[in-house]
């Protein structure tokens, strides 16, 4: 418990919240009304286009629904079917493996680039923009780009590897190399992560490094003992966001292996959970089953995020917080 909480007056905390609340002034009430008025378009949009569909999808997950005929209540059938569906297991395995590969890759590469960027002094602005630009590429274009760059015969990646005498793999057809190819391609869009790390790095007090240098700390020790702890909140934020993003990975893999890039060719190794969900919903019109799949993913994301928050208590340092 933090010292702030320990110091709180007992009488104040034992009071009911209602009794403890002070009456707001007319000005405050007027401000509140104005604020609510201004954010009401968002609130209405959220309620109509997000919250209500989410709630309704929970209902649909207990139905058999093909879009055109009314939903028919089927109890837990969709959830039972999920347990017996081999492709659900395959899609979950693919998604977890991809997440386990892509999140560390994104964190390590973007942290390395941000560290280099910090050294760039006056050129930082230019490189910051340059690194961020790929983030502006539409995901569908990235999916198509993947097929070109990672083409086993004529792709730039294998051409590059060929310079060193390496016979590059069949990135787009060999099931063992499909996910590594997608992970490498996902690094295309780490611009935002780099910017977050750069901001965190620039906030680390220089005195800490100076003191460490006086004490004879090596560059690695300074990075590991000072930089990493000091930017651990940013690392934690990036891990959380990228984990959720990877668990919901869809567009690039779908475009490259199931959609426009390949109308008939597909590869099981790229069947991510969101792709399987999309197929069930919009290709096979099994909206009830797809809703159940969506809720399973929701629960998985919640559990994974909760575990990450639990783990963060041990590893994340907040200045002024209790994790010292």
């Amino acid at each position: 418990m933090s010292s702030a909480q320990l110091d709180a007056p007992v009488a104040e905390t034992s009071r009911s919240p209602r009794r403890g609340r002070r009456r707001s002034s007319p000005q405050q009430r007027s401000d509140t009304r104005a604020a609510l008025l201004f954010i009401s378009p968002w609130i209405i949009g959220f309620l109509v286009f997000t919250l209500w569909p989410v709630i309704y999808s929970a209902y649909l997950s207990f139905t058999d629904y093909d879009v055109i005929n009314p939903p028919t209540y089927v109890g837990l059938d969709n959830y039972r079917e999920m347990l017996e569906d081999d492709k659900v297991r395959l899609a979950l395995r693919n998604t977890f493996v991809f997440t386990l590969m892509s999140v560390p890759a994104k964190v390590i590469v973007s942290l390395a680039l941000a560290t280099l960027l910090k050294q760039a002094a006056r050129a930082t602005g230019f490189f910051r923009t340059a690194f961020f630009l790929p983030k502006m590429t539409p995901p569908v274009a990235i999916g198509v780009l993947l097929l070109l760059l990672f083409n086993g015969q004529q792709g730039l990646i294998n051409e590059f590897l060929g310079i060193f005498g390496i016979n590059g793999p069949a990135w787009t057809t060999d099931p063992n190399w499909v996910k590594p190819g997608l992970v490498l391609m996902s690094l295309w869009t780490i611009g935002a992560t780099i910017i977050i790390f750069l901001a965190a790095l620039q906030n680390v007090p220089q005195e800490l490094y100076d003191s460490a240098m006086v004490d004879g700390a090596s560059p690695w020790q300074r990075f590991w003992r000072i930089t990493v702890p000091m930017i651990s909140p940013a690392i934690f934020f990036v891990v959380i966001i990228n984990t959720i993003d990877s668990l919901q990975s869809f567009t690039e893999a779908y475009t490259a292996f199931f959609g426009a890039g390949n109308s008939t060719y597909s590869n099981d190794a790229a069947l991510f959970y969101a792709i399987y969900l999309f197929q069930q919903a919009f290709e096979f019109l099994q909206m009830g089953y797809a809703s159940a799949l969506a809720w399973l993913m929701f629960v998985i994301v919640m559990v994974v995020t909760a575990l990450q928050f639990w783990g963060s208590k041990k590893f994340v340092y907040y200045e002024g917080g209790d994790n010292t």
């Binding site: 209500w52 879009v67 919903a281």
Partner: peptide, 17 residues
């Protein structure tokens, strides 16, 4: 009415409008 609601809501909830 229920078809309308179901059609609209399922679409919204599962990626598309």
């Amino acid at each position: 009415k229920s078809r309308l609601a179901a059609a609209s809501v399922a679409s919204l909830a599962l990626l598309a409008l």
